[in-house]
Design a protein around this nucleic acid. Structure first.
Length: 262
DNA sequence: AGTACCACCTGACGGC
DNA sequence: TGCCGTCAGGTGGTAC
């Protein structure tokens, strides 16, 4: 699930629940989700401290600790956060459980364990080390155009390339290309000025809208692809059946009427 | 540079 | 009902 809008929702959730409380206990239940930091390292760093603030960059969530240091969360395909009191209802997917002195717990949950938990002294350093591009919502049009320059691959691959820009994954790149009326396989270097502008505008619009909708596709306004993102479903604009193709290894859905092949 | 394929994990779904 | 193949919204490595 977690692309930029989802992670932004997690960030707000954490801001509303887990800040400014002393961390009493830290339990790492599966080391498979660890990045470079060790379990002991995570535990020692968090215990006795508080979460002070959060920052999101692309699909990464950084959580600032009192006295230097940040916890880094990446959610993979199935990660999410859960704040709860007392007993855990379904602890099967709780990979990391942080217990506060108010009796509440914050759990990092993941079914497929494809996410990563790590530590960093400085988010900017971490972003550099991971070679992440600028956050998709912090781009201005000039910077966006710079990113497109000299690229020859498909536009969908570029949108999903975290080194180019950070935050977009398979489903929101589909939605953005649908709204912009651009076929996912369109070569980047064949996009007209008009389409580049359209793409940039729709990227912002889709991301802002998705965040407003709590990143739940069912809440999206009429005219969005995501609730109908299945082969053969009618296009919400023209009723033509949605088609499915592979674009750099990922399944892409698009409307052949609204997004003609270039 | 770009793409294709595999791997990491687990669960859901469709076909038989 | 049960087994099996396939696929899933992410990422990294390798090979071409």
């Amino acid at each position: 699930m977690p692309e930029l809008p989802d992670v932004e929702v997690f960030k707000r959730y954490l801001n509303a629940t887990g800040l400014h409380q002393k961390i009493d206990q830290v339990e790492l239940r599966d080391k498979k989700v660890l990045g470079k930091a060790s379990a002991g390292n995570i535990s020692n760093t968090l215990k006795g401290r508080q979460f002070e603030s959060t920052r999101r960059h692309g699909k990464h969530l950084f959580v600032e600790l009192s006295d230097d240091g940040w916890l880094v969360l990446h959610f993979g395909m199935t990660g999410f956060l859960q704040y709860f009191k007392g007993e855990e209802e379904d602890p099967r997917y709780h990979m990391l459980v942080i217990s506060f002195d108010n009796g509440y717990h914050l759990a990092y949950c993941s079914r497929r364990k494809l996410g990563t938990i790590d530590l960093t002294d400085n988010p900017d350093t971490f972003i550099d080390q991971e070679r992440l591009g600028p956050d998709a919502l912090e781009l201005n049009f000039d910077r966006f155009e710079q990113l497109l320059k000299g690229r020859r691959g498909s536009i969908k691959s570029l949108l999903m390339n975290q080194q180019a820009m950070a935050g977009l994954g398979n489903i929101y790149s589909d939605e953005i290309l649908f709204q912009a009326g651009i076929h996912p396989k369109t070569a980047v270097d064949t996009l007209t000025d008009e389409l580049r502008q359209q793409l940039f505008d729709k990227m912002r619009e889709v991301l802002d809208t998705a965040i407003d909708c709590k990143a739940d596709p069912e809440n999206l306004p009429p005219g969005y692809l995501l609730p109908r993102r299945h082969e053969g479903e009618p296009c919400p604009h023209c009723d033509r059946p949605i088609e499915q193709i592979k674009v750099s290894g990922r399944t892409a859905y698009y409307c052949p009427g609204k997004q003609p092949q270039g």
